[in-house]
Nucleic acid binder design. Structure first.
Lengths: 239, 239
DNA sequence: TCAATAGTGTCTATAAGACATTATTTT
DNA sequence: AAAATAATGTCTTATAGACACTATTGA
């Protein structure tokens, strides 16, 4: 029993709210060995959830996360709790928004959630150890087929999806889902998955190359039954 | 003496961090009756600060704010603490970012600050009561001439300025600094103050009118020694 | 040769930016 | 008439989107 639960209502009202960090971590595919909750494994937006083992919302699915640690920054806490749940290192992590809904029950514990969003690259996910799959309380879901969620985690995921889509329009987000070397068709497919609609290959190519953030690797992807595509790597704009 | 201060170090480490809300509240001019800390009163970006009356950072200037209340949302707390400090109702309020820097001293209290940013319109500031000026611990400063600040409030203000500028580029932010009816020259001047550089009057006019968010009032601003300008009001896009 | 995808070229519509020109008011 | 700013017009350049066309591979 936690310290919190020993307090009466009046005491709880004087307390500072509990502060938790939660992370919405997107990947294009569930990692190897992962437990998945979806019928097909097509590309799409996937994210890991953790089954709660205690009240409130016992047995419901929730975002990976946990309470703030006294000696860690918020970002460090987000990172540590995400890696603890999935055993995989994300390639990107950024703060999303803070949620502090008021629970109407006088008995309820006041909770402030500082939400983060993260991205896993194909390489991150491929390197997952079999050990990660052993935790039956962690599973991967498609973002368009989520279970009922604990707390306001449904709202948090919706906010993360909106942020991911708006960022994709102007920032270099998509390449982080891929390997360091990728073709323009692969990059376009990521954009299409995130945005939810098809893009013109010719125009997409021209826009990406005009941004000056892609660099030819000199390699190409042979073995396909058509003209092989050149591969590129992402190179941040330097001025 | 607060409950917190009675705890020893080990106990503090088990505690949840304190959660405070702070607000960066921009206005084009300091309100009537306000105490100001700047030599001239030209238009610019101004914001209210509160002098701390207790440790830590006793006597330093800080953003208006306060601890989260058990029965209020974060936004409600931001609003209430801002109005308590300035006695003026803001025309806009939105969450900015959460800051959770780790104080390196083992003795230090861990603090998470959920920052908001707000806007005051000319009308908001004009309606300020004389009573607000009586509080000697509240004063208005120009954003480009700030004093030393408590906590990480300098970083918070810098983040708010960046957000304000990027929002101005694509969202209808500027009109909230003005009265409900305004001329295109006034609106342009606000953009210039926020962005920090001059804009072409002709092109600015065409872009604003093309956005379909401005509506003619039918009035114009006479009394000037040149052709009087038509006034407009902001009308959110409906589809 | 055909199928399939990589990659290029071209046309149109739209918008930004620079800047000239006309319009309307007070002094 | 002069000064000052409002409001409009025009030209250039850049970019998005639609879509036709060429290039290169394996079967």
């Amino acid at each position: 029993m936690s310290d919190w639960q020993k307090l009466n209502v009046a005491e709880r009202r004087r307390q500072s709210p509990r502060v938790a960090v939660s992370t919405v971590a997107f990947a294009l595919r569930p990692p190897a060995h992962a437990r998945v909750h979806a019928k097909d494994e097509e590309q799409g937006l996937w994210l890991p959830l953790v089954r709660r083992v205690r009240a409130p919302f016992k047995d419901a699915w929730a975002l990976p996360g946990g309470p703030t640690a006294w000696n860690q920054t918020l970002t460090q806490t987000a990172h540590a709790t995400l890696v603890a749940a999935t055993r995989i290192e994300p390639s990107y992590l950024e703060q999303l928004y803070s949620f502090g809904s008021v629970e109407r029950s006088a008995d309820a514990e006041r909770l402030v959630t500082i939400a983060y969003w993260a991205q896993y690259s194909a390489r991150d996910a491929a390197g997952a150890t079999a050990a990660a799959g052993e935790d039956t309380n962690v599973a991967w879901f498609r973002a368009d087929a989520l279970p009922d969620l604990a707390f306001d985690h449904g709202e948090i995921i919706a906010t993360a999806l909106t942020r991911l889509r708006s960022r994709t329009a102007y920032a270099a987000v998509a390449h982080r889902f891929l390997d360091p070397e990728f073709t323009l068709a692969q990059l376009r497919e990521v954009h299409e998955i995130i945005l939810g609609h098809p893009l013109d290959p010719a125009n997409f190519r021209r826009q990406m190359l005009a941004s000056k953030t892609l660099e030819e690797t000199g390699h190409s992807l042979a073995g396909v039954k058509h003209r092989p595509a050149k591969t590129y790597r992402y190179r941040p704009e330097e001025d």
